[in-house]
Every structure is written in structure tokens, then in C-alpha cells.
Write a protein that binds this DNA or RNA. Structure first.
Lengths: 137, 137
DNA sequence: CCTTGCCTTAGATCCTGTCCAATGTAGGGT
DNA sequence: ACCCTACATTGGACAGGATCTAAGGCAAGG
């Protein structure tokens, strides 16, 4: 994620104050924030920034493969700045918090061709679900 | 899923016309319907049935382990009547349709203890994403 | 420094899903 | 066979997340 801005500018991304702030927020603590959390942190530095812009920017970043969107069972989606290194997620079923994990094995090769049903398979996502230490207490 | 009603009655589930219809819809084609699709099909047989009841009933069935709830990236959740046999899902990134798949390998054992971060890990879900034949055409 | 086309904005709107208070009813008890 | 009562159902309001819209703003190439 570092030098995200440089990479984007090279690809003709128009650089605005709002986009810079959103990128900086994501580049900060590598936690998995919801869109509204990103908005809140961005608004600390740029109070006028609108929710719509944050949503737009996040959508852009996801499309460009710079950020990963993680759905958490009907809760707000979370955004993972660590899109450049493949990994999976461990999700707390109670509070929705997320950790990155790196399981062994390759689930993509675990899907026999006979099971593809004509789909063009693009990716696998492995989600471990459990209770985090905070919620267990 | 067959004889769902029998199993539920044994466990003291009050049997109403509405619940019977919802169970019948799920027991019909083994596709993965959204709550509103279940409601639409149920309403063909029992026109007065309300959305709230369908949601309530689905929630109950999920709690009792008779039906699996599958989140599809921010779209409406889908309900999988095939909860009794463990399996994973292949999801069309375009239209949201789902197929059941049975990959080889055991992803639960692929998570080293060092990666648990103190979580009590309860389950794994593997989601293959791709484009279904219909959407590819 | 001007122009143009992309960005941003606030607020309306949409979609899913839940909540509520009022009404209905399954099924055990008699 | 009938009555009770606890549990279900209803529809409409509501809430959260996300998208859309039309108007105005501004980056950056010329």
C-alpha cells in the first residue's frame, strides 16, 4: 500500500485533497475500517469531506485492486489496505472485527474442474469465523 | 432437509400455515433463494403471508441449523436448504447466483495455531468467486 | 490563466432487514 | 368439543448501509 498515491497518479488518477486524505487514512494503522470509520478519520483532517466521496473513492480503490473489500455477514463492509499480499480473514462473529491470516494450502487447487459448473473461477476467499478474545471476556 | 417439518415438530416448534409454506418452498428446488424470493414463492400459495414472518421463520431455521445463511458481498443474503451436508460455495460476481461445491482439503486444519490471535475458531467458509455461464454469454 | 471534464457535495432515495403494538391462532388442558 | 394462553403473524414504521442526482467546484493540460 505504500506509495499508493504515486502509483495512482501514474495511472491518470486525478489527485484531490479528498482522495489524498482517504488514502492516508487507509495507509495509517493497518486495521480494517468500515466506510463510515474511514469517513470519520478523514473528516478529522478535512472536515468538509462528504460520505459520498469516501464511498466513491473506496469503490475506485477496490476496482483498481489497491484495497480489498471484505463483507462481514450483513454488517458494514470493511476495507483492507493490504490488497497486495494475498491473505485470508478471521472474523469475529460477535463484534465483526477482522484479522488477516495466512493459512497453508491452496484452496484454488482444491476445486476439481468437475465442480466448476461452467464458471470462470477468478478467486477464492477463505473466512474463518470465531469469537475474538475481547468478546470472549 | 427432507422431513424438516417432522424434525421441527419434535422439537416443539409450533406449526402454522405460514411456516409450513416457507419450509415447502425451501424444500422445493434446491436453489439458493433470497428472503424476498422465498416470500414471493410463499405468497403464491398463501397470499397474505407477510415479509416479517418469512424473515422470522428463516432466522429460526438458521438458528436451528436447518438452513444455511450465505452472505453475498452486500447483496441480499441467500438461504441454503442443504445445511445438513457440509459444503462450500461458488458465487457469480455478476448476478449473485450460487452453486454448492465440495472442494477437497480441509481449510480448518490449514490455519496454524500461531495464526489464531486468541480467537476461538468455530468454522471456515470457502467462497469461490467467478462468472457463471449465463453472465459470460 | 483558461477551459474542460472529472470530482465533490448534500440530500434524496434505495434496499435489506428489524422492530413494534395490535390481532390471530395452535394445541394443551379440561 | 371448547377455551385459554402463550406464541405467531401482520403491516407499517424504522434503521443502517450504500448509491444516485443535479448543481457547483477545481485539477491539470494547453
Amino acid at each position: 500500500m505504500s506509495d499508493l498515491l504515486g502509483r495512482l497518479r501514474e495511472r491518470g488518477w486525478r489527485l484531490t485533497a479528498q482522495r489524498r486524505v482517504v488514502a492516508e487514512v487507509l495507509d495509517g494503522d493497518h486495521v480494517h475500517l468500515t466506510a463510515d470509520e474511514v469517513h470519520a478519520r478523514a473528516a478529522e483532517r478535512l472536515p468538509e469531506i462528504s460520505r459520498a466521496t469516501v464511498y466513491n473513492t473506496l469503490r475506485e480503490l477496490v476496482h483498481r485492486g489497491e484495497v480489498l473489500e471484505v463483507s462481514t455477514d450483513g454488517r458494514a463492509k470493511r476495507y483492507d489496505p493490504n490488497a497486495r499480499h494475498p491473505h485470508h480473514h478471521l472474523l469475529c462473529a460477535r463484534c465483526g472485527s477482522i484479522r488477516d491470516v495466512h493459512p497453508t494450502g491452496d484452496p484454488l487447487s482444491d476445486l476439481p474442474a468437475s465442480q466448476s459448473f461452467g464458471f470462470t473461477v477468478l478467486e477464492v476467499e477463505v473466512t474463518y469465523r470465531g469469537i475474538c478474545p475481547d468478546c470472549a471476556a
